[in-house]
Structure formats: structure tokens, C-alpha cells
Design a protein around this nucleic acid. Structure first.
Length: 819
RNA sequence: GCCCGAGUGGCGGAAUGGCAGACGCAGUGGACUCAAAAUCCACCGCCGGCAACGGCGUGCGAGUUCGACUCUCGCCUCGGGCACCA
């Protein structure tokens, strides 16, 4: 690339400056750290984009810029910063879009990626393009498939026939996370239930570890809201599993968080899919039960899960024995009990559970009080379920009566355990991760089914199992991936016996691609392994990760899980992949989050063209706190641009050695030192808006004092560099420097010079600030009081009254209370 | 319903319990200009006042404190997440 000519009219021309420095960075490999030699490695990661055909919008730009600012700051602090970027290009989103416009994703994606690369480069990110990849590259997904085989080997991948979320529109199975609220995340259609053979990962084996690591600050310095989201998603609850015997020696096993209320369990409810429903149903009730089960199956998930909370159900005719009371209690079937949580069966305690209460009321079942407050009678009627258990005691509960609920919980669990009827258990909301997708656009799962040998993993030496090009990649509602229609690919010899077998036609979940990409970036030069142990040790865990909180429970949880498995396999030496994670805020436009689906996107291209990338970066970082986001409006972007223009003028004055005023003013020096301190601190905590404000204040101070002292201007340029990298490089060169500004060192400050010699002490009288006095910083309380009492305003408020209280905060304020 | 955030000028937003409104945008007045743009200077929370100055003011109501945007309690509103999870 050749550097453009920059006109010598003294004005700031962002387009020329940006083209010049982008060319130079590329030519000089400025952003490509030596991964083996780095002495102070800093892995600065940001969530890689899904390359949509529409290109980046300023919401994405906001996120990438914020992460880039941090990386550039760290580089200036002397770290060798590795800032990779790639493309998360497999998945249903890409495939659906390709289907919509009728272009094969294999053709569409490279174009979208090229456009993304152009846009990302134009932004001036410190990306190491030499280590970029797309998850759709066979050199990448070869290792995604390898990863699957490692999980299989470790016993963490298994196949089972399961009721899964089926989207009738996308014609595919969805992970629970993609079917939240019973609605397909991609297309908004109601999700149905279907039984299919699926591959699962045992993420639930790691539930406890995923949870406990969240508390370990040495491993995880994460945004609190992200930690909270993960904790809620894993959904740990402590309770008990209790067996209720039925005729024939079998038991109905339930999970409950309130074993202390077992004496109030007056009936039981099974999920319609529960395997014991058949056994329990009497001849007389069979037609009704069958009808109910069918009706449930036909109901889509929306009405079942989030629709009316109106309870419905039918009596099976069967009974079970409450192990606490010995009573026979009726067993019902109702769809408010879910097969996929707990055991799919509950003991219903209508007196102390909202749902059971509603159900019992509707069907006339017995409601029994077993918990009461201290001042409540043991048989006072329940007009509504009594849920709270704090400061309550048991009633009507055999020899546990009168025990506080907390004690009763333990006592009853121990008692049941002794009787062999139950035990204390922990239950999680988290489910195993279904990774099978009956789609085309993903990495084929590397398995061959053989009639003799069963499912056989594809040997690692035969990877990748290439995704074949098939013109017709439409999914159909057969529940089988389009790959099954590609016969040359579908039939393959069994790796074990050599007889003809059939390939697994499902591809893996897009989230598997992104669950390990951070491991690949520093290892793209290794063709023979997913990652190199010494590279990994040097660069991981990721030093800083910045991304959207929409991935708080999906991507981030899966990445942690995969890392733990690799750790257990001895392949990596750590079990948490991201040492520091910060969630950025959202860019709001017209009152809504900027997103393609909302149709309120703004592309960066027009702003870069009009104002320059550096101005856009500055504006985005200035418009609000990075971790909270802000409103994007056109008005306001000229502010940062004016600021850069002024700095530009200042730098040209400096470079022409037309120093105005030889004497460095004290105020400016203080401001300068204060600014260095504040900007350093603010950048560290991602408070970019206030850092920029501080730089503006320093500029204003320089201009007001007419003191363009060279060392101050130099520091200003360095501190500006993370935000406006091209601009800062050009200024740096104007100041006579030969190397990149990013090879400069971050300014340090003299703490003693960050404070002024004199201070203004506000004087509060009865809580109101009435005046202020100017005193030396070291002034004693006596001096401040003496000065204050000479102040005419203070005199006015104090005369004729007595000072009853005096509070002096040294260097801060004087507070007087008069009466 | 539950769990997180957040409510501050015309706007975006600043404030370790210590001068509320930094910084910026918009606006107003002025300088420069034939004129406009750009630039520069000044003003810029609300009410009263020529002014000095005074009163009010950080969603609402209490409280703690010499002092509260900040802490506590009780509400209201908005945004986000979870949700028949036993």
C-alpha cells in the first residue's frame, strides 16, 4: 500500500491520515506481536462477530472500539497486546438468511466477511489480521470436530432420544437457550416438542464447579450482572428427593425444596409424559387421561409454559402413599408439572405452594395447613397459600409439630433417609447441552453409524469431515439434516470394520464453534494441533474479554464448560478461560436497542466518510459510560471532531516551535498531572467518557493559559492515542517522532504536583454552603475558622448566634452549626 | 411474580457522604466577515431581583447525619433478564 499525500494546508484531513496509518500499520506489522517472544503478554479479546450481509452497525462498532481502546491502552503501558478478530460464520442465522435470499451460504459468507474486514479495518482496530479465521474454515472446524471427539472420549458426550424443542419454521431442534419462552429465538415461531436421537454434552456434571468458580475472584474478575445471570441460569436449589410408594413395589420419586411440608402433601401430580402415568391409570380413568395427554402434546410450548396459568389436569385413579403420614393420596396428571425439571413428578402441598393451591381449589382437593406463624393457631384456615417460612413453625406434622421450619427441614430429611424413603439432594435448572442440529450450515458431527459396530467416531487423522457443497440445503420436516440427501457423502466405510456405514447427518450447534475460538487464535500457525501447550500457557486464560451481556448464559457458560473439560483431560492448565470479563452497554437508537430485527441500525460507513473513524470512535466512547451504553444521535458528533481539530492546531504550533510563553503556568502543570492520573484510572475501569472529558479539560486549560508546553502536548497525544489512534500517530510524527506512538510509554505523573498549593474551603452554615475561603492547603482548622469568621457573608449568618458545633474536614470544608 | 440495572438542566451525561450539573451538544448575545460558514469571546437549572444576593432543585415519601444524587426503609416509573423450576 502506498501512503496518501497529506495536503499541506494545515487542516486535519481524517481520510488521508487514516489511510496513511492503516497502510503503515499493515506494512510494518505493527499489530502482530511475536507470540513466542512476548515478555508481557496481554490477550485482549472481544466477541467475534457473526458476519451478516448487512455489515456492521454502530452498536457493534461501539463494542469493538471499547475493547480496542483498552487493548491500545495496555499496549501503551508496555504489554505485548494480542488483539485477534475472526468470524462466527456458521449457524442458523447465516443459513436462514441464505435461504431467504436464495444464495448458497458458501457463496454469501465470504462476501459478508470481506465487507466486515473492510469495515473493521476502517475503524482502526488494533487487530492482528495475520491470525484471523472464520469458524467455517475447514482448518478451524477440523478442530471443532476434534473437540467433539475429545468430549466423547472423556464420556462427556452422549446420545439419547429426547423430547427436544422443535421449531416448525426453521425445521430444526433448538437448545433450551434458543427456545426461551417457548419461542424460537431466530424466527419467533412457537416451539413444539419432538422425540429425536440427539447428541448431548454433560454440562450438568459441571454445574457445581461452574457455580463455585463464580465466587473465586482470583480466577474470575467478571461484571456482577454477568455472574448473577449465570448463577440464576444454573439455578441451584437445595431440597430432597422423596419416594412415594405405589402398588406393585414401585415408587414415585419427587424433588422438593420444601421437605418440611411433607405432612401437607395431600396429592401428587405427574407430568403428562411421566413413565408411570400408564401404570397408575385405572381402566375407568384411562380415556380421560389419554385425552389429556394428547391435548398436552398438541399444545405448543407457549400456551403450556407462558400462557394462562390456569391449571388443568386429570385424576389417574391411582394412589400413592405419603411416607410421612402413611396416607393414601390421589395421583393426578397435570401439565403444570414439567418433565424436564426435577423428576417430572411432585408431591403437592396445596397449603404452602401457590400452584398446588390453585389446582387443589379448582378440583376440590384437600388443603392442609402444616406451617403456621408463631402467633397463629395450628388450624386457622388458609385463604391463600402460605409460602414464607421465616419465623414459622410446623403444625399438624406428627412429632415434628412445633419445630421451626428450618430445623424441621433437616429433621424430616434425616428421618426419611433413615426410613429409606428419601434423601437430601441438590437440583439444578441447567440441562445438558444438546448440540445436534438437523441443518446444513455447520460442522458435521464426526460419527459414522455402522450396523455392526454402532456409532463409531471418525478417527482424528481423517478430520475434518468436510461439509459437502450441496445446492439444495433446505431443511425439511423429516427431522433429518439435508446432508442425508447427499448420498456420496452420506455413505462411508465404518472406521472399525470397514463395512459400509452412514455418516451422522447432524451438524453441531453454532455455540460449539464459539465455545473454544479463543483457544485457536494464538495457534493458527499450527496445522497439526488445535493448540500448542506452550502457546496456551503463555497467552491464556484470556487477560481481558469484552462482549455483550446477551451472551451471559449461552456462549460464556459453554466456553467455561469446554475449558473445564479440557482442563480435566489435561489439555489445558486452567479451568476458567476468561480472567476478566466486562459486559458493554447497548447502543440505543429511537428508544430501542440497535439491532437488525428492530430496523433502527446505523452503519458506521457514512460517519467514517463524513467525520473520520477517529471522530466516530471518540464520539461513541464519549456518549455514555461504556458498560451502560447510550443514545446514538447525530447531534453531538461534531463535539469530538472540534476537539480533535483543536488538538491538531495545538500540535502544529508546537512543531513549529512557536511556543507561546516560555513560563509554564502552575495551574496547567497541576491540570496536566491530574489528567494523567485520572485518565490512567478511568481507562483501567473502562470509564471512557470521563477520560475523554478529562482530556478536553486539559486542552481547555492549555488554551486558556496560552501555554503549549511541548511535554504537555506530547502526553496529551499519547493519552488520546487509544481513542483516536490514526490521529495520534500523525500528531506524534508532527512532533518529530520516528516510531509509532504505540511504542511510546504511557505518561506517569508526580503525585505531589496533582494538588494545588491553595485550596478553597466551602463554609457551610447549618448545612448550607454560604461562602468559601481561600487558604493554603496545609492550613490548620484554627486558621480556616479565623478566616471564615472574617468573611462578611459568614458574619451575616453567625452574628448574634452561638456556634454550637463545628466540623472541619481538612482541605475539604468547614461546617458550622449555629443557634 | 422473582432477579438485576437505572431515574440528575432543553439533550447526552459528571460528582471517595463534603461547593450538584464536570465535559460535550443544542441555544442566546457579541467579535471577525460585504454576507454566510468556520473560528473566537461571553452567558446558559428554575423562581425573585438592576444587582449584590436570596429561595427552590438530583422520580415520590420518611429516616440517619453538621452535611445525602450518594447510606437505610417504604413506594412510583422505565429498561433488561428469568419465569407453572416444585
Amino acid at each position: 500500500m502506498t501512503e496518501p499525500h497529506i495536503p499541506d494546508d494545515g487542516a486535519y484531513h481524517p481520510d488521508r491520515v487514516e489511510a496513511k496509518w492503516q497502510a503503515r500499520w499493515s506494512d510494518r506489522r505493527t499489530n502482530e506481536p511475536d507470540l513466542d517472544l512476548a515478555a508481557r503478554p496481554f490477550y485482549n479479546l472481544m466477541m467475534f462477530p457473526y458476519p451478516s450481509a448487512e455489515g456492521l452497525h454502530v452498536g457493534n462498532v461501539f463494542a469493538f472500539t471499547g475493547a480496542d481502546v483498552y487493548g491500545r491502552f495496555k499496549r501503551l503501558q508496555g504489554y505485548q497486546v494480542f488483539e485477534p478478530i475472526g468470524f462466527d460464520a456458521f449457524g442458523i442465522q447465516s443459513e436462514n438468511y441464505a435461504l431467504k435470499i436464495g444464495i448458497h451460504p458458501g457463496q454469501l459468507i465470504p462476501k459478508s466477511i470481506a465487507n466486515f474486514r473492510r469495515q473493521l479495518s476502517a475503524l482502526g482496530g488494533m487487530f492482528d489480521w495475520s491470525r484471523s479465521f472464520s469458524t467455517t474454515d475447514p482448518e478451524y472446524y477440523k478442530w471443532t470436530q476434534w473437540l467433539f471427539l475429545q468430549l466423547l472420549k472423556a464420556g462427556k458426550a452422549y446420545r439419547k432420544k429426547a423430547a427436544v424443542n422443535w421449531c416448525p419454521s426453521c425445521k430444526t431442534v433448538l437448545a433450551n437457550e434458543q427456545a426461551e419462552g417457548g419461542i424460537c429465538e431466530r424466527c419467533g415461531t412457537s416451539v413444539e416438542q419432538r422425540l429425536l436421537e440427539q447428541w448431548f454434552f454433560r454440562i450438568t456434571d459441571y454445574a457445581e464447579r461452574l457455580l463455585t468458580n463464580l465466587d473465586d475472584k482470583s480466577k474470575m474478575d467478571w461484571s456482577d450482572r454477568t455472574i448473577t445471570a449465570q448463577r440464576n441460569w444454573i439455578g441451584r436449589s437445595e431440597g430432597a428427593q422423596i419416594d412415594f410408594p405405589i402398588d406393585g413395589g414401585e415408587v414415585i420419586r419427587v424433588f422438593t425444596t420444601r421437605p418440611d411440608t411433607i405432612f401437607g402433601a395431600t396429592f401428587m401430580v405427574l407430568a403428562p409424559e411421566h413413565p408411570l402415568v400408564d401404570r397408575l391409570t385405572t381402566k375407568a380413568e384411562r380415556p380421560a387421561v389419554e385425552a389429556y395427554r394428547q391435548a398436552t402434546q398438541a399444545k405448543d410450548v407457549i400456551t403450556r409454559k407462558v400462557g394462562e396459568k390456569d391449571k388443568t389436569g386429570v385424576f389417574t385413579g391411582g394412589f400413592a402413599t405419603n411416607p410421612a403420614t402413611g396416607e393414601k393420596i390421589p395421583v393426578w396428571v397435570a401439565d403444570y408439572v414439567l418433565m424436564d425439571y426435577g423428576t417430572g413428578a411432585i408431591m403437592a402441598v396445596p397449603g404452602h405452594d401457590e400452584r398446588d393451591f390453585a389446582f387443589a381449589t379448582k378440583y376440590g382437593l384437600e388443603i392442609r395447613r402444616v406451617v403456621a406463624q408463631a402467633d397463629e393457631g395450628s388450624d386457622s384456615p388458609l385463604s391463600e397459600p402460605m409460602i414464607e417460612d421465616g419465623d414459622c413453625r410446623l403444625v399438624n406434622s406428627g412429632h415434628f409439630t412445633e419445630l421451626p421450619t428450618g430445623e424441621a427441614f433437616k429433621g424430616i430429611v434425616a428421618w426419611l433417609e433413615e426410613k429409606g424413603a428419601g434423601k437430601g439432594v441438590v437440583n439444578y435448572r441447567l440441562h445438558d447441552w444438546c448440540i445436534s442440529r438437523q441443518r446444513y450450515w455447520g460442522p458435521p458431527i464426526p460419527i459414522i453409524y455402522c450396523d455392526g459396530c454402532g456409532p463409531v467416531p471418525v478417527p482424528e487423522k481423517d478430520l475434518p469431515v468436510l461439509l459437502p457443497y450441496i445446492p439444495d440445503f433446505h431443511p425439511d420436516d423429516s427431522g433429518v439434516s439435508p446432508l442425508a440427501r447427499h448420498k456420496e457423502w452420506y455413505y462411508a466405510p465404518c472406521p472399525q470394520c470397514g463395512k459400509q456405514g452412514r455418516r451422522e447427518t447432524d451438524v453441531s450447534d453454532n455455540f460449539l464453534d464459539s465455545a473454544w475460538y479463543f483457544l485457536r487464535y494464538p495457534n493458527t500457525d499450527f496445522a497439526d494441533r488445535a493448540f500448542d501447550r506452550s502457546r496456551i500457557e503463555k497467552w491464556l486464560p484470556v487477560t481481558s474479554y469484552i462482549g455483550g451481556n446477551e451472551h451471559a448464559v449461552l456462549h460464556l457458560l459453554y466456553s467455561r464448560f469446554i475449558t473445564m473439560v479440557l482442563n480435566d483431560l489435561g489439555l489445558v492448565g486452567f479451568d476458567e478461560p476468561f480472567r476478566k470479563f466486562r459486559a458493554h452497554g447497548l447502543i440505543i437508537k429511537d428508544g430501542a436497542k440497535m439491532s437488525k430485527t428492530k430496523g433502527n441500525v446505523v452503519t458506521p460507513d457514512e460517519y467514517i466518510g463524513k467525520w473520520g473513524a477517529d471522530t466516530l470512535r471518540m464520539y461513541l466512547m464519549f456518549l455514555g459510560p461504556f458498560e451502560e451504553g447510550g443514545d446514538f444521535r447525530d447531534a453531538g458528533i461534531n463535539g469530538p471532531r472540534r476537539f480533535l481539530d483543536k488538538v491538531w492546531d495545538l500540535v502544529s504550533q508546537c512543531s513549529r516551535k512557536t511556543l507561546i510563553g516560555d513560563e509554564v503556568h502552575h495551574d496547567v502543570v497541576v491540570k496536566w498531572q491530574q489528567t494523567k492520573k485520572k485518565v490512567t484510572h478511568d481507562l483501567e475501569v473502562l470509564s471512557y467518557n470521563t477520560a475523554i472529558a478529562a482530556l478536553m479539560e486539559l486542552l481547555n486549560a492549555i488554551r486558556e493559559s496560552n501555554c503549549s508546553e511541548r511535554s504537555i502536548v506530547k502526553d496529551l497525544v499519547v493519552m488520546l492515542a487509544p481513542f483516536a489512534p490514526h490521529f495520534a500517530e500523525e500528531c506524534w510524527e508532527q512532533l518529530g517522532r520516528k516510531t509509532s506512538v504505540f511504542d511510546a510509554s504511557w505518561p506517569t505523573w508526580d503525585e505531589a504536583l496533582t494538588v494545588t498549593a491553595d485550596v478553597e474551603i466551602p463554609i457551610q452554615i447549618n448545612g448550607k454552603t454560604r461562602s468559601k475561603v481561600r487558604v493554603p492547603r496545609s492550613a490548620t482548622e484554627e486558621l480556616v475558622v479565623a478566616r471564615a469568621l472574617r468573611d462578611p457573608i459568614v458574619v451575616k449568618f453567625v452574628s448574634g448566634k452561638t456556634i454550637v458545633k463545628r466540623v472541619y474536614v481538612p482541605g475539604r470544608l468547614l461546617s458550622l452549626v449555629v443557634a
